[in-house]
């Protein structure tokens, strides 16, 4: 069996007028691989993530996705209906702020069940059972199923957002600073959870973070960005233990040691 990349990114650039969002980014993402994009704020990592996840159209370059039928499709040339269908079935997107990714005024169960209903599940009992199962998997007590996310703590919201995204068994999940705004102990628990889920489900993920510890824990491979350019990429341990670029060395040495 030959494995082929899930996502092929070729020379992607995004300009905001004359300003550079990101420039000439190329890489391939393999099934089951977790890629971290790190860099300081303003380095273009969120722009890149938006271009990859079709939330923004790249100015130039091509992003191809390996569909379930075995074909590669250019995301920019897909019909909008198909792209949106892909986004809510085969993909997940975890926002930094859970309020962006959740429906705050409907219950946790409905939040998890929404994707199921969107793909045509019409059996209340089954939807609810699946939702309860996913709440358990992200360590939210089952009796909270009818509570609104407004009543949840920040960590719980983020876990609920993850459950909501994973319920349709996506193959690729985008995460934008998934641990931003959480305190360290909650972060640790969330990271542990994400690592377990990624491993169990064989997910591929692209994680944008400025936190090198997150990258170290979750990712297999990482890309370091600066001023819209990828300045270094490689295996996570290699980049963090033996950074080659001066900027990466600076980044690694700026981690606070307690």
């Amino acid at each position: 069996m030959t494995t082929v990349p899930l996502l092929k990114v070729n020379d992607v650039s995004k300009f905001y007028g004359s300003r550079i969002g990101c420039q000439n980014v190329s890489f391939e993402l393999w099934p089951g691989e977790v890629l971290a994009i790190v860099g300081e704020s303003g380095s273009g990592k969120t722009t890149l993530l938006s271009c990859l996840s079709t939330r923004l159209m790249p100015t130039s370059g091509k992003v191809e996705y390996h569909m379930r039928d075995g074909q590669y499709r250019d995301l920019a040339r897909m019909a909008e209906a198909e792209r949106r269908f892909l986004m809510r079935t085969d993909w997940g997107f975890v926002h930094q702020n859970p309020a962006d990714g959740l429906r705050m005024t409907v219950s946790a169960g409905a939040n998890v069940g929404e994707r199921l209903m969107a793909v045509g599940d019409r059996h209340y009992g089954n939807i609810r059972a699946t939702a309860a199962d996913w709440l358990r998997r992200v360590e939210i007590e089952e009796d909270r199923i009818d509570d609104q996310p407004r009543a949840f703590s920040g960590g719980m919201r983020q876990r609920l957002q993850i459950a909501r995204n994973l319920v349709t068994a996506p193959r690729l999940v985008f995460m934008d600073e998934p641990t931003g705004g959480l305190d360290v102990s909650v972060q640790a628990r969330l990271l542990d959870l994400v690592r377990g889920l990624v491993h169990d489900l064989g997910l591929s993920a692209i994680i944008v973070t400025h936190d090198l510890a997150v990258a170290r824990l979750l990712s297999h491979r990482m890309m370091v960005m600066k001023d819209g350019l990828v300045i270094e990429q490689g295996l996570t341990d290699r980049v963090l233990d033996d950074p080659r670029e001066p900027y990466t060395q600076l980044l690694v040495s700026s981690i606070l040691q307690v």
Binding site: A81, S107, A110, E114, A118
Partner: peptide, 17 residues
């Protein structure tokens, strides 16, 4: 785009409550 999953979310909420 005929994306009507949300309509059922409303009905789901009704039953849940």
């Amino acid at each position: 785009l005929e994306e009507y999953g949300l309509m059922h979310v409303k009905l789901y909420e009704d039953i849940a409550r």
